[in-house]
Amino acid sequence: MKTKRIACLGLFIALAFVLSYVEFLLPLNIGIPGAKVGLANLVVMVALYTLGKKDAALLSFVRVVLVGLTFGNLAMLLYSLAGAILSFLAMLIAKRTKLFSITGVSVLGGVFHNVGQIIVAMLVLETGSLLYYLPFLIVIGTISGVVIGLLSGMITARVGRLFDIK
């Protein structure tokens, strides 16, 4: 099943890349730096629930680096990477506990993505004033987490079997 796995992973990365591009084209312009809906997280969620944690981690990492190098700069790459790592760890732990459905996991992912980004931004810019934006980002992360979670729940239920290589 190795070939299928690699093909699936490639497909997922391409999809995540496209969704990142869509998000790049339609930035959520509400005057808050780093605020994102996190459409690409949809793919990471689906991958986490179908391909497993190792592939999902790889997918998440490759996506961030690709998008960062293509559309952003080094600083942006750094922020996204921190957000992605923190968010992935949070989702992994949440999933392990089996306390939450896919929506709860997604909410944690969304919230921690923004928290990670802002922490790195604060360290890089050496300013605490960004802390002011954190509550907004948590709220946005929660809302987008719910939406992404519900969507990825539906997708996993309907097409998950196709990718299910386990």
Partner: peptide, 16 residues
């Protein structure tokens, strides 16, 4: 949830 969101946004925005 909606009430909490409104509360957070209102308090934080005023403190800007």
């Amino acid at each position: 949830i909606l009430a909490l969101i409104a509360l957070i946004l209102a308090v934080q925005y005023r403190g800007k």
